[in-house]
Amino acid sequence: MRREIPLVITFVVGMIVLLARIFTAADGGEFILAKWAGELTDWVIIVSAFAVGLASVNLFRIHGDIVARKRPGWINSLTLLAAIVVFAVIGIAARFGAGPFFSELNQNLYDSIISPLGAAMFAILAFYIASAAYRAFRMRNLEASVMLFAAILVMLGRAPVGELIWNQFPSIANWLVDIPNTVGQRAIMIGAAIGGFATSLRILLGIERGHLGGVE
């Protein structure tokens, strides 16, 4: 039963949502399947909210244990737990109208801590791209050479300095992105969509059970 119940739920819910995308009421009135599909979509949102709670419990247990046992790096775990509590309390207070003090504090915490931290993480990408490109882009064979030249042309075409060097770089970059790239993207998209469809069908019909854990 532990496996059958989730499989039945998956099948029923999946069919309702699928059929609601294809059929409608003959008289143009309210279609019961569409109504159910809407309700079920709302349930997904609610269940997702519970999953956040469940995951947070895991976070608290792991890091609470590190702090309690004073394992190496416990101060980081303590900072994490404190940050979760502080941000949650201020966020909830701001959201539920505890006054302009909390709204402003919430916005300031966001602008001065989360925003620069996130931007800093993203900025690391520029450095990693530089080191990875330097290491990987070698003209070892024909394919690698084509990729290398395409990358250089797009980089020159996308930055204003490229145009300063030669005014045709942007057109070449646009052509590369619009034509060969779009062709490849479409092919991968169609292939991945078919793969996704077959995987979804296997899950809907209960043929695929790997995600339920254990050996099939």
Binding site: Y134, F137, L148, I152, M155, L156, V161
Partner: peptide, 13 residues
């Protein structure tokens, strides 16, 4: 930034 990356790729090659 783009020019620096291109320069390193050229040097590497």
């Amino acid at each position: 930034g783009h020019l620096i990356i291109i320069a390193f790729i050229i040097v590497g090659n």
